[in-house]
Amino acid sequence: MERVPVLKIGDILLVSIQIDMEDQVALQLQEDLAERIVASGCHGVIIDISALDIVDSFVGRTLATIASISRVLDAETVVVGMRPAVAITLVELGLSLPGIRTALNVELGMELLARERAEDDEDRDDDADEPAVTTP
């Protein structure tokens, strides 16, 4: 069975799907990514689907599941590179991929993740500045 490679670039895991995946390959990717997120401590995942000429409900569901698993493991997922015809078809199929962040390409996806991470850190700093208990 073929396997989709997962690359680590800085704080981000990059997955570029270049093959017409069998269902088992998609499920394997889900497992591989979860393991890599934990092993690497990465906080962002980018899945590039620009080479996919279709996304059916199975692949769509797998992407949504990957995003949910990542979030539980403290990583954000961004799906990038969806072709226009794929977007039109997905919506008509009835799959709008709720809960999935998207960007038009890898570069914009990386910017999105960096921005979100910075905002998260800011929130955390704000929390730290506030005293835990306010006394009158």
């Binding site: 279709i54 996304v55 072709r83 226009p84 015809a85 794929v86 039109i88």
Partner: peptide, 17 residues
């Protein structure tokens, strides 16, 4: 057309599964 190809292949994938 490209969009119709994409729709038909997607439908075929669903139904074959």
């Amino acid at each position: 057309s490209l969009v119709d190809q994409t729709k038909l292949v997607t439908a075929a994938s669903e139904l074959a599964r």
